[in-house]
Nucleic acid binder design. Structure first.
Length: 360
DNA sequence: AATAACGTCAACCGCCGTGGC
DNA sequence: AGCCACGGCGGTTGACGTTAT
């Protein structure tokens, strides 16, 4: 037996709110408050609306200090930084943008920001491909290796060189500031990579997954993403087989248990859910190296740094200078803004653990 | 001018966590 | 411990406006 409906659907008006309804609701709440019971509210006011609908209307439209209209560049940056870090946690993102509602931000992301991001990425990708084809032809003629400067031929397999700093907020202390490499690692994981100590799953202790992670919404399948990345890298690069490191592709199992290995990094599989081709774009992107990902993001953020191909053939190091523009635009806002988020959201520490923690 | 295609956004739906009983 | 009501959240839908053909 299902749950009883919160209201009598047959006698409830749906669709756009009329000015009269708005006025009634606004006047009542401003005078009396919600009374802590949205379900009972419409009857008190004499509105033929569902309580949930009233709540939504108030929160998204009628409540004071709601900001309507275009998003600023700064707001764009915050949204993107947070999305990259925590995914589609719109309410948390909204908490960082006074006057904006989660619904607004969600719509804005889905209809504009995502495309803006993709548009820039596509342009760069096309340019890169064009130059790649040129070089490839050049190399074929000369019988050389198919490698572009600044491109690594290995599948994306991030080395465990980055410092491991758990980004937990389980204490009362402020969360540690993410340093460059931590942020990069975090990002790379979300892009589907894994780290070099992933191969020792049995050797470590297990850590309970937070309840919210341990649901069907968050199948832990990092290695599967990695395998896909590998396939993508095989399909999208013309690298000779000899230059590709072997990769363990036998561990593509969705972890549904109640524990996860502390050497594994928990990444929600739906981190980029709803992005359709965007996920593929990101995966495709990872056939090149960290530096290129950094440049891609910098491109989005509007900085004009170009790839210094000569310095990026190594697969492990990421110059902090390359991260600089992103760091300065995005993460400070994220970090300094995280505090109100913690205050407002009791489960904020859970998010911190879910998305930012990995153990040594 | 007509209409198809696309974009935007308010609103809805259903699931989940929480707290009271 | 189990049930229930409720609030909150994220994903999706559909109406409406705009642009392209």
């Amino acid at each position: 037996m299902g749950r009883a409906p919160c209201c009598d659907k047959a006698n409830v008006k749906k669709g756009p709110w009329s000015p009269e309804e708005d006025a009634k609701l606004k006047a009542y709440i401003e005078e009396n408050g919600t009374g802590g019971n949205w379900i009972a509210l419409p009857q008190k006011i004499g509105l033929k609306r569902c309580g949930k609908s009233c709540r939504l209307r108030w929160l998204n439209y009628l409540r004071p200090n709601i900001k309507h209209g275009a998003f600023s560049e700064g707001e764009d940056n915050i949204i993107c930084s947070l999305y990259i870090n925590i995914g589609s946690r719109w309410s948390i993102i909204a908490a960082q943008l006074p006057g904006r509602t989660d619904n607004d931000i969600k719509n804005y992301w889905n209809t504009r920001l995502k495309k803006k991001l993709l548009g820039k990425q596509r342009k760069e990708q096309q340019a890169r491909r064009a130059s790649w084809l040129t070089v490839k032809q050049e190399m074929k003629r000369e019988g050389g290796d198919y490698m572009l400067p600044g491109m690594v031929s290995q599948p994306p397999y991030w080395p465990q060189q980055l410092p491991v700093i758990p980004f937990t907020t389980t204490t009362n202390q402020d969360p540690p500031l993410p340093n460059d490499q931590e942020s990069i690692k975090n990002l790379l994981i979300k892009l589907g990579g894994r780290f070099s100590d992933d191969h020792h799953p049995q050797s470590s202790t297990s850590t309970p997954i937070p309840n919210s992670m341990n649901s069907s919404r968050y199948p832990l399948d990092v290695s599967f993403a990695q395998d896909q990345l590998y396939e993508n890298s095989m399909n999208n690069t013309v690298s000779p087989a000899s230059s590709i490191s072997p990769i363990n592709s036998t561990c593509s199992q969705v972890t549904n248990g109640t524990h996860f290995n502390t050497n594994e990094v928990a990444v929600p599989n739906d981190m980029f859910q709803g992005l359709d081709g965007f996920t593929d774009e990101l995966r495709e992107l990872t056939y090149s190296n960290n530096q290129q990902i950094m440049n891609w993001l910098e491109g989005f953020y509007g900085t004009d740094n170009t790839v210094d191909g000569s310095s990026t053939t190594g697969s492990s190091s990421v110059e902090s200078s390359s991260w600089g523009p992103i760091y300065s635009l995005g993460f400070p806002q994220l970090v300094t803004g995280f505090e109100p988020c913690q205050q407002n959201m009791p489960q904020a520490s859970t998010y911190g653990e879910q998305y930012c923690t990995w153990a040594v």
